[in-house]
């Protein structure tokens, strides 16, 4: 199972890297979203995929509970998903606003914050 998941994670990483190399901001947004999901799946896979019983401890149990699934990766993924959701909605709006006010979604043409071609300052004063 881990083998196939690892291949899937690799494929998603490849797809998101391809998207992130694009100049179009909307593809960058999708690439970042895909990257986040690839990472979540990666954490899920490295947390060992097992077919154990769910990690809920019965009330009357004394001593160690063996053979339960690891609940931690899921907690981590949940946190990462929530953060990823917040960031995704932010950059989506950011990309939209940038497209609206800059009139382009090509990152090469976004040069408002870059230095303009000006005369170099003279050394004399």
């Amino acid at each position: 199972m881990e083998f196939y998941l690892a291949i899937l994670v690799g494929l998603i990483f490849a797809a998101s890297t391809y998207m992130l190399l694009s100049r179009s901001v909307i593809r960058l947004v999708l690439g970042v979203a895909l990257l986040g999901n690839a990472v979540n799946l990666l954490i899920f896979t490295v947390g060992r995929v097992t077919r154990h019983i769910p990690p809920i401890i019965p009330l009357d149990l004394q001593g160690e509970l063996t053979g339960i699934a690891n609940p931690l990766p899921q907690a981590l993924i949940l946190t990462a998903i929530v953060i990823g959701f917040a960031i995704f909605s932010f950059i989506l709006v950011l990309a939209y606003r940038a497209y609206e006010s800059l009139g382009t979604d090509n990152s090469d043409e976004m040069r408002v914050a870059e230095p303009k071609k000006t005369e170099l300052t003279k050394l004399t004063y």
């Binding site: 960058l28 950011l94 990309a95 940038a98 800059l102 040069r111 914050a113």
Partner: peptide, 18 residues
């Protein structure tokens, strides 16, 4: 939300997210 800020924020956001 000025133009120059949005432009800077796009670069800041994506590279930091990466």
């Amino acid at each position: 939300g000025e133009k120059i800020q949005l432009d800077g924020a796009v670069k800041y956001a994506f590279l930091n997210l990466l």
